[in-house]
Design a protein around this nucleic acid. Structure first.
Lengths: 191, 191
DNA sequence: TGAAAAAATTAATCTAGATTAAGAAATGCA
DNA sequence: TGCATTTCTTAATCTAGATTAATTTTTTCA
């Protein structure tokens, strides 16, 4: 199963086989059922996760008690709360499985020690982060520029299969509006 | 003047002196007057910039012709349009000086060649990107959770000096609302 | 397989922030 | 120094999306 991550790494960089194996050996499997948590608000985020199978949402609970989804994660994505993981601060985010899932995890100590020595794995994580930055930038741009309906259209266009995969209320929350409003939008489409 | 960047790098990583010098030697100075552009919509973003002095805003023009500020950059920040820089796509963003400024720049080819060999500089840019990711994540969380007035309060609290540094209409745009609304907020504070 | 829980829909009402427009203050520069 | 341009403010009106609440549909699992 770790081959799935190996393949992902080799798409971007070319570490030596020994470098790669020593990295892969530091990763542990964790299997999570739907609705279970990888991370809860108030904990320290001790791991960075690579999703082998399944789907997750990262959310926080705002002052009004409403759950706000800030991110989704699916197969072949890395997922963590960077703020908590890097700065060793208490997490405001929850990371919860939205399907029965399987992940690989690595602790900060182990990752740091890998990244102290491996050029290629530094390149790998840097390249991943560049992609994340580009996605974040686009997302911020969309949030500024598009109406709720347009946000939904664009998201649907870019992730037609994913839209089926999670409940509408999670999607609405991720897109920044209420489930009722999403329902209104979808009603309008059909009509 | 390149010492300023050297100092910044040494805050995070410990490259050899030769590694560092060879990196620094690939960087060129560029001096920019207020309102001039480092990058214009429709161009390729050829450089990544380190700001030695001054202030920039990154913005795009939406379909209604309104300028939307997506980012600011000040001293000791790296600034680029990653999407255009990394993927060699045409930029939708403009990067414009908001003060008379001085930057160091490095082209993609030169940066790639540095990052092919230097472990420590890969670590440096990875660490920078982790910080950017954390900031983006927080920002997205704020955009979800806070009202316009609260966004202004938080931004003001966290950047009291910077608020003085750019025109209010740029700040309003960055925070995601109209100058009129910002003016309304500020009026309310005084009263 | 059917009752309970979870999720989605519909509709009425409400509000944060947008829009428009016109005037006042700053700022820049000849 | 003064005029022109840029920036900021005020106020009236408008709208996208929130809120609330009642109803229906779908999913779960005993």
């Amino acid at each position: 199963m770790k081959d799935q991550l190996k393949e992902h790494i080799l798409k971007f960089v070319t570490p030596s086989e020994s470098e790669l194996q020593s990295f892969l050996s530091t990763l542990d499997f964790e299997s999570i059922n739907n609705k279970e948590y990888l991370l809860k608000e108030g904990q320290y985020c001790k791991y960075q996760y690579f999703i082998l199978k399944g789907c997750f949402r990262a959310f926080f609970v705002n002052r009004k008690g409403v759950e706000k989804v800030v991110n989704f994660g699916i197969e072949n994505w890395w997922l963590t709360n960077f703020d908590s993981f890097i700065n060793q601060t208490l997490s405001e985010l929850n990371i919860q499985a939205a399907e029965d899932s399987l992940v690989l995890k690595i602790s900060k100590e182990k990752l740091d020690s890998v990244l102290k020595h491996s050029l290629e794995l530094n390149r790998y994580f840097r390249i991943i982060l560049e992609k994340v930055r580009i996605a974040d930038q686009r997302r911020i741009q969309f949030m500024y520029n598009l109406s709720g309906e347009e946000l939904y259209d664009v998201f649907y266009e870019q992730n037609p299969d994913f839209v089926q995969r999670v409940p509408q209320y999670m999607l609405a929350s991720y897109l920044g509006f209420t489930p009722e409003f999403l329902s209104k939008i979808r009603g309008k489409k059909k009509a």
